[in-house]
Structure formats: C-alpha cells, structure tokens
C-alpha cells in the first residue's frame, strides 16, 4: 500500500466528522424523487384488472398492427431523437 498517508487523512476526516455528530449539510444539488408513495403494484394484482388492466386490449383491438412513434418528452431533448445510435460511443465502465 503506497498511499497510507492518503488513507490516514481520509479516515481521519471521517472520524472527525463522526466526533461532531455526523452533521453534514445536505447536498443541495441533488434532486429527489419517490418522496411520494409509489402506487401499490400488487393492488392491481390483488384484484382483477382495475379498469386499466381489464378495460382495454380486448380480443379485437389487441393486434399489434399499429405503428406508433415515440411521442413524449423525448421531443424536448436537444438531439433527443437521433437515428445515429450506432455512432454513439460505447457505455463506459
């Protein structure tokens, strides 16, 4: 281990933080989500086909015969809809 001093400084600062009571200011740049409850997915499973489950996709209109294009917030991204996927760099890591 060639970085003993780095480790000592780092753990030392954690320890110091602990001694003052873990009082760290919240990171203000962070966005939060799921602060409100996710709907209970198993409610629908519990009981049959809430309207959304049973109400659509009947025998007659269930054929996969329409060609829909993505039409949502992707339109608000600059360059959000590109056909040059193959030119994109590979994912890191």
């Amino acid at each position: 281990m060639k970085n003993q001093q780095v480790l000592s400084l780092a753990i030392g600062s954690l320890l110091a933080l602990g001694l003052v009571g873990n009082a760290v200011a919240a990171d203000t740049k962070m966005e939060k989500c799921y602060g409100v409850a996710k709907a209970g997915a198993n409610d629908c499973g519990s009981k049959k086909a809430g309207h959304a489950c049973a109400g659509h996709a009947t025998m007659n209109n269930d054929k996969n015969d329409f060609v829909a294009l993505p039409k949502g917030t992707c339109d608000k991204l600059a360059g959000g809809s590109t056909t040059e996927a193959s030119d994109m760099p590979k994912k890191g890591m």
């Binding site: 629908c44 086909a49 809430g50 959304a52 489950c53 996709a57």
Partner: peptide, 15 residues
C-alpha cells in the same frame, strides 16, 4: 379466458 388474459397482461403492463 379473455378476462384472465387481460388481467395477466394488464397487471404486468401497469407494473
């Protein structure tokens, strides 16, 4: 049977 099919797909779609 169709009611059960719709339940199956609908529940997974909602999930």
């Amino acid at each position: 049977i169709e009611v059960y099919r719709n339940n199956y797909r609908g529940n997974l779609q909602d999930a």
